[in-house]
Design a protein around this nucleic acid. Sequence first.
DNA 1: GATACGTGGGC
DNA 2: TGCCCAAGTAT
Length: 359
Amino acid sequence: MEGFTINIEKKQFQNDLVNWFHEEKRDLPWRRTADPYQIWISEIMLQQTRVDTVIPYYKRFVERFPTLRDLANADEEILLKQWEGLGYYSRARNLQAGVKEVAEKYGGKVPDSRKEISALKGVGPYTAGAVLSIAYGLPEHAVDGNVMRVLSRILLIDEDIAKPKTRKVFEEAVTELISHEDPSAFNQGLMELGALICTPTSPKCLLCPVREHCAAFHEGRQNELPVKTKAKAGKAVDYAMVAIRSGESLLMEKRPSKGLLANMWQFPMAELPASTETAEVEELLSEQFKGTVENAEKITSFKHVFSHLTWNVDGFIAEGKDLQIPENMKWVNAAEMELLPIAGPVQKMKTALKSRGDV
DNA sequence: GATACGTGGGC
DNA sequence: TGCCCAAGTAT
């Protein structure tokens, strides 16, 4: 019971796909290097992230950390600042942990076996196969969303690709189909096809180099596949975010080292019902910092949607005096603030402060 | 296996 | 506007 049947001419399919890839592939920065370390970086950045978004980040990143040891030795705050805006920040910290392990355990050479590379932080089944095939030319499966979409159509696989166990079906299919002459072009070809031709909606079948091999195309069912159940909606939480000023400095807080936006910086926040009065905000913060927080003023109100939840934020500015601040907070001037890694909601708050000339 | 984990673009 | 998405992994 495999969930699929190979009814295509394997050799011809491989040739059509690989030849098309070599002819039509986009000129992307990570396709100009053979360095496993840099290819690894690109694969981590590309997880759940669009190519056009990744390009400038990748360029800056490899310029800042050209070698594996540069990244292994990098300060985490600088690393996160480089990653700022890319999202899924644990990727950056896991990547550095993986890089450190390679530096220490493998003499700086990225391992070339699935067992070893998969043991590295942040390297799952997809990334392992991608690095092994692209950097080392090994015939290993690399199944991402593109591959599942493309093969669900070609092989008429109607299992729900939202379910984790379904990925195994596609891994078996790729293992069966992959070109041993050019595993890199085969894997990248499937993904490139998914990105350029075999798109989620309105696939460009008439331009497809492998349409003759595609069961869905033959049956006119390309728009029915892949089958993918939708995720349930996330919850919403209300917060007050407060820029507390003292002279030329603002109070910033480092988030915990686990969970949402781990180790990123923010203005102090409290979970409060929307439209909480400024007087209540002053009172709450004065008590929290055992000092005086006064002249609070609401300066903005916004919604920030994460993948699994929504923050409804009221942003305040206030003045603080004689505050006792905890270990994870510090006063920063404008120049120092520019060095701290901050995520989307704090970015929005900062924009509101800037428009008033407060930063 | 279900849920946590970001962001910006496209329709 | 709101929903779906885009080269997934950790727990």
